[in-house]
Amino acid sequence: MSYIGPVCWYVQFVAGWKEGQWVQHKTPSSHNALAPGRPRERGAMWQQLLQDGRLAFNEHWPRSVLVPVAVGLGGVMVGWMFCGRKPKTIEMGDGWWGSGQRPRLQTEDASVRPFTIEVSEEAVKDLHERLDRTRFCEPLENSQFDYGLNCAYLQRIVTYWRNDFGWSKLVEHLNRYLHYATTIEGLEVHIIHVKPPNLAPGQKALPLLMVHGWPECFYEFYHVIPLLTEPAKHGLNPDLVFEVICPSIPGYGFSEASHKKGFNAVAAARVFYKLMLRLGFKEFYLQGGDWGSLITTTISQMKPESVKGLHVNFIFMPLGGLGHFLTLALGRYLPWLVGMTNEDVKRLYPYLKKNLYAWIRDSGYLHLQATKPDSLGKRYLF
């Protein structure tokens, strides 16, 4: 029970702040308190301390409780912000996403085969016939895009797609870079692989894996590839040259979709890591956006020794955790404490209105695609 005295004194000390002055509560010296042969004095001292502590607590309990609690929470926050946390790693594992059972004796074809994009006249004719049969409904008056894609705007898109879109020109443009295909975990994976055309003698290009997201595809990188592979031609640093690999996520573009349930970002990360090894790269750089951000981040957690650098233009925020909760709770009132700027506060708060409510209102597609993707996909068969 020897801690009761200091605790009571601390309560009095905290509670005694009045109008800028500390009310001093004198305590017997440690020599007198511990001196042998004075049991009555020591007993009276403890009783007086307990009584003074109770009186101080009853009179000043909000301050005497809230101040230590605030100090404690501040200590937790400082420790959370400045104490290093062990990086989380992800097991690589293995998988098979092809049709049927995984062959036990036959080894997977590890060849990287040339791939050419082709669109036949029959496919274009069939598309035109289906577009001609499209039946449009009238949008609600003054609804704009409040309930999704406005049907009047959709009609303009279909008209352009049917009458003005040049398929042959698009195919020629897409084939400007070399395309390849290779089989990994039972799936045919499509990639474009662009090497720098004009490396200086002795210069080495940096391998860069770029992964798209939804609803994009590999084509979103076409305009940036020349800046990465031919920087000097565009007025950029000629010493920083990249060799670019852009795969299509399985199920996107020209990559085969999984035949099994459960294909996720970890599986895609593993497939793309195996792809880089197959192309001869044990170390490489990563860039990703949207789902590509999650896939490339997963690769860096799965094989950190192989990742020389990671750049993402989309951040996946964790949904829970004490740190996340405290950041949101304190960010509006103490933004500097949790690393927020005034612009961050303006964008985030009021949090429920600008984030949760807006997310629920605009994420209907996400719930449908995550739970019943076949129901949505089969609409395009008719």
Rank of each mutant, 00 (worst) to 15 (best):
residue 156 R to C: 00
residue 265 A to K: 13
residue 43 G to M: 07
residue 40 R to M: 10
residue 134 T to S: 11
residue 264 N to K: 07
residue 12 Q to G: 06
residue 381 L to H: 09
residue 290 D to Q: 06
residue 87 P to T: 10
residue 95 G to N: 07
residue 77 M to D: 01
residue 144 Q to E: 12
residue 376 L to P: 00
residue 90 I to C: 04
residue 232 A to K: 12
residue 67 V to Y: 10
residue 156 R to I: 00
residue 100 G to R: 14
residue 355 N to W: 08
residue 105 L to P: 02
residue 166 G to V: 13
residue 321 G to W: 09
residue 88 K to Q: 14
residue 327 T to K: 15
residue 300 S to R: 13
residue 259 H to F: 15
residue 343 E to Q: 14
residue 334 L to V: 15
residue 19 E to D: 10
residue 31 H to S: 04
residue 352 L to G: 04
residue 308 K to M: 13
residue 114 P to I: 00
residue 335 P to D: 10
residue 44 A to I: 03
residue 359 W to K: 06
residue 215 P to M: 01
residue 311 H to T: 02
residue 284 F to A: 08
residue 207 P to F: 03
residue 221 F to V: 05
residue 242 F to A: 05
residue 281 F to R: 00
residue 298 T to Q: 12
residue 181 A to P: 01
residue 375 S to F: 08
residue 287 Q to G: 03
residue 67 V to G: 02
residue 13 F to A: 01
residue 162 R to P: 01
residue 82 F to H: 07
residue 242 F to H: 05
residue 19 E to N: 11
residue 44 A to G: 03
residue 195 K to E: 08
residue 132 D to S: 14
residue 54 R to A: 09
residue 246 C to M: 11
residue 307 V to Q: 11
residue 260 K to G: 06
residue 91 E to V: 15
residue 359 W to M: 07
residue 186 G to R: 02
residue 305 E to N: 14
residue 239 D to I: 09
residue 346 K to F: 05
residue 74 G to M: 07
residue 354 K to H: 08
residue 331 G to H: 12
residue 169 K to T: 04
residue 321 G to R: 14
residue 189 V to P: 00
residue 312 V to D: 01
residue 328 L to E: 08
residue 69 V to D: 04
residue 95 G to F: 05
residue 250 P to R: 09
residue 254 F to S: 03
residue 216 E to K: 03
residue 74 G to Q: 10
residue 142 N to V: 08
